[in-house]
């Protein structure tokens, strides 16, 4: 029983991270119809920047916010420089540009931060919480809290603000949105910035638990995409559900079978969903558009 709970906690912890990455994919997809293959690099940049900022002597909260803001800015620049010139073009070109861009971002991180693995201090020092025979690290609570906060903030942004309504309108009909005076190009830039910020948040939140390095982006990006497509791409609610589900699947597969399977789980999920139900498994349950 306690073993089960321990796996559950671990699964929900990683799942929250995947959910944040999946949300990033979802936001960009909703705004442009495109998949950004560089999404995972924003996770990497968030963690690496935060570590570097604390090395410079910034207090952790400041460093974290600065890292997220800087990554969001990089996301916007990425859109303007690489994606904008071919906006609306064939998926093939967008895939290639974002892949090439991902390589460039990763290499820049390598040159700036070096090849070593880096770790961040936990947000709050202290012993793990113990209940029902399960130990929950304080950082895990931070991850859950920040994920929940991000999801709620995003929901409010989309539902309650004029800006969010414009984003949703753009997602539904880009041409019509332009007619009513929405600046669709601007929306796309903001979508990339938001997605990058969410990725960075995930990277910052998890850095104290798992070390980070310049090369971690690609793998996490694929997992986040697996989560997004598990839920049905384009839907933020099922993207979060997909993330949590993927985390749990991984955790239980690793716990009950073999830790070596952990990284394979997301890939198998990705391939199975793509081959069997590319419109997503959870999508039918809740047909909610952004």
């Amino acid at each position: 029983m306690s073993e089960f709970l321990q796996f559950l906690v671990a699964g929900l912890k990683n799942g929250s991270i995947y959910a944040l990455i999946a949300l990033g994919f979802t936001i960009v997809y909703a705004a442009t119809g495109a998949i950004n293959f560089a999404q995972g690099e924003f996770f990497m940049l968030g963690g690496m920047l935060c570590v570097s900022f604390t090395d410079l002597g910034m207090p952790l909260p400041v460093a974290a916010v600065a890292a997220i803001a800087a990554t969001a800015a990089i996301g916007a620049a990425f859109e303007l420089l690489a994606v904008r010139p071919i906006a609306g073009d064939s998926p093939l070109r967008i895939i290639m540009v974002t892949i090439g861009g991902a390589v460039v971002l990763r290499q820049l991180a390598l040159h700036f931060f070096g090849p070593d693995e880096r770790a961040l201090a936990p947000f709050t020092e202290g012993a793990s919480l113990k209940a029902f025979g399960v130990a929950v690290e304080l950082q895990t609570l931070w991850i859950w809290g920040l994920t929940a906060l991000a999801v709620v903030a995003l929901a409010l942004l989309y539902r309650k603000t004029a800006f969010g309504r414009a984003m949703r309108a753009t997602a539904i009909r880009r041409d019509a949105a332009r007619l009513v005076g929405i600046n669709a190009g601007m929306m796309v830039t903001v979508a990339f910035a938001l997605a990058a910020g969410l990725g960075a948040l995930a990277g910052v939140a998890v850095a104290p638990l798992t070390q980070t390095a310049f090369g971690v982006g690609a793998a996490i990006g694929v997992k986040g995409f697996a989560a997004a497509i598990l839920g049905g791409i384009g839907n933020p609610i099922t993207a979060v559900a997909g993330g949590l589900l993927l985390g749990l699947l991984e955790s239980f597969a690793a716990g009950y079978f073999d830790p070596a399977y952990k990284d394979g789980v997301a890939l198998v999920v990705l391939l199975v969903v793509l081959f069997v139900a590319p419109q997503g498994l959870l999508a039918k349950a809740g047909r909610v558009k952004v």
């Binding site: 998949i35 998926p91 694929v222 497509i229 990705l270 391939l271 793509l274």
Partner: peptide, 20 residues
């Protein structure tokens, strides 16, 4: 199994296959 997939999805499937 990739026959139905195009564009982004085919790219992701081949990427996932490669990583696997």
């Amino acid at each position: 199994p990739s026959l139905r997939l195009k564009g982004y999805y085919l790219a992701m499937a081949t990427l996932g296959f490669g990583l696997l």
